[in-house]
Amino acid sequence: MDSKTKKLLKRNLSSLGFHTAAVIIGFLMLYPVLWMISNSFKTTQEIFGQNSFSLIPGELLTENYTRGWRYNGTTTFTTFFKNSFIYTGFATLGAVLSSSLIAFGFARIRFAGRNFWYTCMFLTLMIPFQVVMVPQFIIFYKLGWVNTFLPLIVPMFGGVPFFIFLMVQFIRQIPVDLDNSAKIDGCNKFMIYSRIIFPLIKPALITATIFSFYWRWDDFIGPLLFLNKPKLFTVSLALRMFADPQTSTDWPAIFAMGTLSLIPVIVIFLIFQKYIVQGLVTTGLK
């Protein structure tokens, strides 16, 4: 065996090892989710019975889906999905765009009071939502925004501290020389932001988009407080309505709708993932 084939064999072996490990651990990671999906086709007895760990349903009960989708007969999941898309879409757009603007301000401009405001931003992250929930509700109620999507969407245009911090970290990874040379070329601050920084922090923007979409999609307490009418419900809110401790719970329908509610989140991930995988074309740097 010459050294070349040896090397190739070694690489193949290590590749095989990698894939084996990734698949086995991946299955463990995914099992609970697969179980959830399989439950969406089972009967209640199957879900909780002796054989409940099985991933293969006795027969494919698709009526779990139709029954779940029907919800209470008056309002269906068609409405809930539509509402979730509206709320999640606008909120994510607002959160990501605003956060990038704000992050640029914090990361690249030295203005008086910068550290103070940055600290304030962290304070809003640390204070438990439970104690600001009531006063916040009162503000939105006084604004007449209850039973609209506004209290869920508008605050997102004020940026999300998590994303702002993330983007600040990414922007600080970009050499300042780039800004300076752009300035010499006649770019103003906004042009530096939009033409240089914004494209260069794409991995952060993409990550923020994926997170924001999921967080808003999954958000329960916001919709619970601000949306009272069933026709305004989001998917995550409707899902929680299935379970009532005092009466019987339609578990197969919960699992069915729970499975469906994962799809948009996964699709968004798949759409945006490739921009993370591809990474940066770094020719513009240095």
């Binding site: 009531v134 109620y141 009272n228 069933p230």
Partner: peptide
């Protein structure tokens, strides 16, 4: 009639907030 409903858990969180805002 405008109907407003939630599950048991969320119901009281919402009602308490509505008490605080007189709504």
């Amino acid at each position: 009639i405008e109907t407003e409903t939630t599950g048991w858990g969320g119901y009281w969180d919402r009602i308490n907030t509505q008490v605080a805002s007189a709504s």
